[in-house]
Simulated scan of single mutants.
Amino acid sequence: MDFQPTEDQKDLRAGVRDLLAGRYGREELRASVDRAAATGLSVDRELWRELGAAGFFALRLPESEGGVGLGLPEAVLVFEEAGRALVPGPLVATHLAAGVVAGAAEGEAVVTAFDLDGGLVSHLGEADAMLGLGGVPAGEPVRSADPLTPLVRVSMRTQIEARYNMPGPEEREAGTLLTAALQLGSALRTLELAVRYAKEREQFGQPIGAFQAVKHLCAQMLVRAEVARTAVYAAAVMEESLAELAAAKLLADEAAVRNARDCLQVHGGMGFTWEADVHLHLKRAWVRAKQWGTAARMEEVLAEELMTEARYRAGEPGSAEPYARSL
């Protein structure tokens, strides 16, 4: 099996990166933060429609249903670029809603989902629909760590109804993997920011990247990002493996959070200021680490799958074939 991206996949990734670089660069990101602070709204509806027109949400929808007809590996590459650009909004839920909720595939509708523990829902106040429910429920706003991910707490009754009507196991697993891809993109971006700053910032007459402590931080960031990339890509092509999926989410969450922290350290005092973008990556990584599967849940899944596989390989009586269950 060839795990290297094909030329078409590379072109797809490059096209999405160019689209986002031209449409949602640093100025647009900071404008989104200011707008969210003033209005509580973080989703750029015009950008949402542009993503829909580019096939972002309909990427895995069959061509017979008006979609692009590609698979999960291509979706992972596309979501990686969205994570790199820190595009705000319920990207995963709207992607999963394509073909289910009217307007989701085209980016005309913003769809959220019950993908957080504690009764929390992201972007509920600006959503047109919620996966698993006929409409958009009411809720109580909760302060979020990420200024571009507003949170609302919904009632227990709404939680039960939403969970009961959520998409099937395959789509829930896709949601977990696509969230891991967003985290991967953020981890790669903070690595780039750290290396660039280490080359530009000078102390004692030389770039700070020449100092061993900074070199070690950047090297550790590279290793985390590449290990996470390998795990996420492998899970995308080995769709039947829950162990691969759980490992991908765990590694991507760790890479996103720890790389953002190390990037902040490389920036020094500058990294702690509101003007720097590093804190936006860290805060988004914290929230995403709780979406579509927490670390505790992924660890349980991974441990269960590994034990099941061990019993199956050992030929224990009554042992089931591994990877037969869902998240």
Rank of each mutant, 00 (worst) to 15 (best):
E170W: 10
S122F: 00
P137R: 00
G107D: 10
A127L: 11
T190V: 15
V121M: 07
L96F: 06
A97T: 02
G132D: 01
E106C: 13
P147M: 07
L184T: 11
L124D: 05
T94Y: 03
L178F: 04
T149L: 12
R172I: 04
Q159W: 01
I160L: 15
V92K: 03
G118P: 12
V142S: 13
A162I: 03
Y164R: 15
G139Y: 08
L124N: 03
F114N: 03
T149P: 00
T158S: 01
D146H: 11
A97R: 00
A180C: 14
R153F: 09
D115K: 01
S155C: 14
F114C: 02
G99Y: 06
V142R: 14
V111S: 10
P141T: 09
A187P: 06
V142Y: 04
R189E: 14
A105S: 14
P147R: 05
V100E: 12
V101D: 03
E170P: 10
G139Q: 01
L91R: 02
R153E: 09
V121A: 07
P169Q: 13
H123P: 12
H95M: 07
L191G: 09
L116K: 04
L151Q: 09
P137C: 04
G134I: 09
T158Y: 07
T158M: 06
P147G: 12
L188F: 05
L177Q: 03
L178D: 01
H95W: 13
G103F: 08
I160Y: 13
Q183P: 13
R172Q: 13
P167G: 08
V121L: 07
A127K: 09
V92C: 07
A93Y: 02
A104K: 04
P167W: 01
L131Y: 08
D128H: 15
H95K: 05
T179Q: 05
N165V: 08
A105H: 05
A181Q: 10
A127V: 10
V110T: 10
A127G: 11
A162E: 03
G125I: 02
M166W: 15
M156D: 15
Y164K: 15
V154I: 03
D128N: 15
E161P: 01
A129E: 02
V110L: 01
V121F: 10
L151T: 07
N165A: 15
T176K: 13
E106D: 12
F114W: 05
G118R: 09
T158H: 00
T149I: 13
L120E: 06
L96R: 02
H95N: 00
P169K: 11
P137F: 08
E140P: 12
T179N: 06
V154M: 05
T190W: 04
V136C: 02
V154G: 07
L116C: 04
A98L: 09
Y164S: 11
Y164P: 09
V121T: 05
P150M: 02
